[in-house]
């Protein structure tokens, strides 16, 4: 009977592993997986930073690094504390932050609106997007003299430089993001009788938000670069003006202090955008 036959097969004794191990005829399958996975190392970066600064300080103290080529970190820290003592840091920082915040916010706001218009209306796309492509690669700092004529030597020209620098990447990020929204979700909205404005507000904008936010990350860095460049050309206060003055006097300790301020500014902006992503895109996990 077939049933008995299967029973017999099942009852066959399995090969005894320990027996085989003794005879040496058995070995484990070699492990070939693993690696190529990122694990989090929270403290590596700060430790590495501190170690580098200490090595740099030692190099400067022993004369291995010439003081003319690179000032010691302690000297740069001294220049920084001078800034705090004289209170000049607030003049420089407030001037720079004002330009950065106004220029970036306006540029982003207008950029998102124009990006949405390009994405949603094919007439606007046909008319405007070639101009965007043509104007995006122009270094905005090259237009600063024009901006000075148009918007004055004061804050206007600096804010305008940042605004234009931020505007173009934001437009491109926004309409790229809208183009990538799942068409099926839009069709779903239509099939349930949602109004046009509801589809834009509840489906298209949230769907494009990840792309818009990563565009913000890029535009914020561009804004900082343009801020310094604009301040170097004509400004009394500002981090860029401070760095330019330090460079002109070959006060390299002040120069390093100014660069450190920019670095902290960049890190802060990056952190703020991460917070915004965390809050607005919590659904992504």
């Amino acid at each position: 009977m077939s049933l008995d036959a299967t029973n017999e097969l099942g009852a066959q004794p399995r090969r005894n592993v320990s027996e085989l191990q003794q005879s040496g005829k058995i070995k484990p399958v070699p492990f070939r997986g693993g690696g190529f996975v990122h694990s989090r190392h929270r403290f590596i970066a700060p430790i590495l930073f501190v170690v580098l600064v200490i090595l740099w300080e030692i190099g400067s103290q022993t004369g291995f690094i010439s003081n003319i080529a690179l000032p010691a970190p302690s000297e740069a820290a001294g220049a920084m504390s001078d800034l705090f003592e004289t209170g000049m840091i607030w003049n420089h920082l407030s001037a720079s932050l004002y330009r950065l915040v106004v220029g970036w916010s306006l540029g982003s706001l207008i950029g998102v609106f124009v990006g949405l218009a390009i994405a949603l209306f094919s007439l606007v796309r046909a008319g405007v997007s070639p101009f965007i492509s043509a104007l995006f690669p122009i270094p905005k700092i090259a237009l600063l003299p024009l901006f000075i004529i148009w918007f004055g030597i004061g804050e206007g020209s600096k804010v305008a430089t940042i605004l234009f620098g931020v505007f173009f990447p934001t437009v491109i990020a926004t309409y790229g993001g809208v183009d990538n929204v799942d068409r099926n979700l839009i069709r779903m909205g239509q099939s349930f009788g949602l109004s046009w404005i509801s589809i834009v507000r509840k489906i298209i904008i949230p769907g494009a938000l990840p792309a818009i936010l990563s565009g913000f990350r890029i535009s914020a860095s561009i804004a900082i670069i343009l801020l310094v460049a604009a301040e170097m050309i004509g400004a009394e206060f500002g981090i860029g003006a401070y760095i330019l003055m330090a460079g002109a006097l070959f006060a390299t300790d002040q120069l390093i202090a100014g660069v450190a301020m920019l670095s902290v500014l960049g890190l802060t902006v990056g952190w703020l955008i991460s917070r915004a992503e965390h809050m607005l895109l919590s659904w992504r996990a």
């Binding site: 799942d182 099926n184 069709r187 099939s191 349930f192 009788g193 949602l194 109004s195 489906i203 895109l281």
Partner: peptide, 26 residues
């Protein structure tokens, strides 16, 4: 006339409840 789609077409940024309220809001 209401569709049910092969790929579900749920909004990933809305909860289950939010996805249903989406079509009621309008």
């Amino acid at each position: 006339l209401t569709y049910v789609f092969q790929d579900f077409a749920l909004l990933p940024w809305r909860t289950v409840e939010g996805n249903i309220s989406l079509v009621l809001e309008d």
